[in-house]
Each structure stands twice: as structure tokens, then as C-alpha cells.
Design a protein around this nucleic acid. Structure first.
Lengths: 203, 203
DNA sequence: GTCTATAGCTGGATAGAC
DNA sequence: GTCTATCCAGCTATAGAC
């Protein structure tokens, strides 16, 4: 009857996303999820059959969200340095919009490592890795960079971009950052991270 | 009557540490904690009064464990580069012995940010920060390094050392690392991280 | 101190009326 | 599809015997 009142199914999904990503699987309850969606537990079970199935659908989409952009960029054709710039900027912008995403994904993965297979079944990890590995070898043969394995390069990039969001409660709680200064720190990091990583591999 | 059978109180604490750090506050149950400690729920409540109090004592000691060494090193007298080497080595060695520590601390902090005040009440954060800030200014005036704020330097160091442990489920699950190759990666990182950070600030 | 028993609640899931 | 009512399992916490 309006745009505001979406159908119940979507309301549940939106509420579940908030609750699961804030409290985790164990900490969230269907009662609260239903309540915030303006309906009842029965409706949740009607649409999603079980807490676990509901969680899975949330986790899956969030997981892909976290890793989709990096996979996309790495599969394009561009010099490594350009790809580096794009990945860092895209990731930081995305995470500024959803700063709780990394800790949600990583903590749930920690408690249930098998979920990684569900999460990554549609991400072409091997294609991304071999393509990147090939590009690194080419550019190192041409004397642009020194060799580093593809997975280590990815790890270093993600460490510098994602970790600040994981440590955010400490930064704002004890290291004097505010919401605003944290955000401008991350804006500054777009350049900083690229420089730091690139300097560590360029010849 | 032996060294193996410690008193119940310690058995409960050890069991609680395992359960909480693997499953988090919400996911762990006093039933299972008691069972693995070879006793009953009643004993847990007898010694620790409530689930929350038991959790707090665990969280507190783990939190201090994570940040004690870095604070210790930063308060010593030594050139910045030496401190950098020590922090990275100490942290990586410690985390290799308890790889689940960072995700436990950070995820619980995410779900309940106020805990940071309990966790840090005995860590002299401000003393550490001002001392480091002073040292950075001195060394940058002497032309050794460029200026970087103390908290940003700490953030960068911790990002490079801690993040691999947070991402470990992905590294071993999808990026081809084994327990062994992960460990030797981290050994290699002791030097790598120091070089990378130092190059990013040295003149 | 250590146990059993149980109170009292909240959780997920299902049955059945409409 | 949507709701109310209800079942049953699991949880924390406490009472009380020994």
C-alpha cells in the first residue's frame, strides 16, 4: 500500500541482518528479529524455516559483499599499481558504509570455519589467484616490482584496509578517535596504504 | 592429591577460557563449561556468582594479555626501530601460541564496546601514547624519520601483525595455507613487517 | 565445598484457527 | 499468509541436603 511498508519477508530479512551482524548467530534471537520486523516468530519460520537457514542467507550475502569488489578489480586488465589503488579505495568506501561487516564475517567464520565454503562457492578464488600470480611474475620480470606471492599481497592489502575497522572500538574508545576523525583517517589511508604497499614491492 | 587434578576453581576457569574464546559469551553455556571442568553448574555459580562475572574475569585477563607486551616495550628506552622489531616479534610469537585471541577480543568488544574500559583500566594508555609521541617527534626532528602520529603508527603495526590471525580461517580454508605454512609465513613476517613499516616512515 | 533438584525463564519450532 | 497458542529443550540461577 506504500513504499514504506514493504512486505513482511523483506522486513524480516532487514531486521535479521541488523541483529545477526550486531550480535552474531548465538546472540541474536528470532523473537527480537520478528519484533523489530513488526511481526511474529511464526512468520520468520514460515519464510525461512529455521534460524540457521535465515542466518545462512544473511551471512552469504554479506560475505560476498565483502569480497566481491576485490575479485572484480583483480580480474580486470590494468597495471598492478592501478589495481592496488582501486581495491583500496573501493574497500574503504564500502566499509565506511558498513563498518561492522568485517568483524561479523570473521568472528562467525572463527566459530564455524566450514561456512567459508558456502560463502565462497560463487567466488572464482583460483582464477583470481592465478591471474594475479601471473601478473606479478610478468611485472617482476620486467623489473617493475620484486616478486611476492599473490596471496601474500592480498593479505597485506586487506590487513591495512580492513584492520582499522576491526579495531574501531579501541580507536574510538581509548585512542581518542571520534566518528569523524576515524572517517577522515580512513580517507587519508586510501593514499597511504597504496604508497606503503607499493613501496614495499616496487624496485 | 596430585598435580594433574587441580582444584575445581582453576578447572572451571580453564574450561571457561576455552569455551568463551571459541564460542563467545552468547554461544557458551555454563552447563558445558562445568561438564568439561568435571563438575556442575552449581559449582560455577558458587565460585563466580554469574555467567557475566565469570566471563568478565576471562575477558579481562585475555585483553591484558593481548596488549601487555606492546605497552611494556613502548615504555622502555630504545630507538624506535628497535622497539618496532621487539613489538612485532613478541606479538607474533605470542599469537602463534594463541591464534584465536584477537578475534575473541575484537568480536566481544564489537558486541559490547563498554568492556574496553574494564579491559584497559590497568593499562597506562596515555603514558604510552605521550611517550611514543615524544619519541617520534625527537627522531623526526633529528631527520631519522618523517612524522606520524603515535596512534597511527601503532595501528599500522598491529594491522600487519594481528590481521593474519584474524583472517586465518580464510587463509587455511581457501588460500591454500596449512597450519605449517601459516606458521612459517608468520615467522617470515617478523622481518617483513619491520621493513615495511620502517621504510614507510624513515627518511 | 560439593552435590541434586528445581524454579523460572527464554529460546526455536510447530499446530491449527482464520 | 498471518496470527495465537503451545510444546519442549536449554539456559541461568538458587534452594537445600550432605
Amino acid at each position: 500500500m506504500s513504499v514504506v511498508k514493504k512486505n513482511i519477508e523483506e522486513m524480516i530479512l532487514a531486521s535479521a541482518r541488523r541483529h545477526f551482524s550486531r550480535k552474531g548467530f548465538a546472540g541474536a534471537s528470532l523473537q527480537e528479529i520478528a519484533k523489530e520486523a513488526g511481526t511474529t516468530k511464526s512468520m520468520v519460520n514460515y519464510y525461512y524455516r529455521s534460524k540457521e537457514k535465515l542466518f545462512d542467507s544473511i551471512f552469504l550475502s554479506e560475505f560476498r559483499n565483502l569480497f566481491s569488489s576485490i575479485a572484480g578489480v583483480l580480474l580486470e586488465e590494468a597495471p598492478l599499481e592501478k589495481k592496488l589503488e582501486q581495491i583500496v579505495s573501493l574497500d574503504i568506501d564500502k566499509l565506511l558504509g558498513m563498518p561492522g561487516l568485517p568483524v561479523f564475517i570473521l568472528s562467525e567464520l572463527h566459530r564455524n570455519p566450514e561456512m567459508i565454503f558456502k560463502g565462497m562457492e560463487n567466488i572464482p578464488v583460483n582464477r583470481v589467484l592465478t591471474k594475479l600470480e601471473k601478473q606479478i611474475k610478468e611485472e617482476s620480470l620486467r623489473g617493475i616490482i620484486r616478486y611476492i606471492s599473490a596471496r601474500e599481497l592480498i593479505l597485506n592489502i586487506q590487513a591495512m584496509t580492513i584492520f582499522p575497522f576491526l579495531a574501531k572500538p579501541i580507536l574510538t574508545g581509548k585512542l581518542g578517535f571520534t566518528e569523524k576523525s576515524f572517517n577522515s583517517l580512513m580517507q587519508k589511508k586510501k593514499k597511504e596504504v597504496v604508497t606503503m604497499i607499493w613501496n614495499s614491492i616496487k624496485k
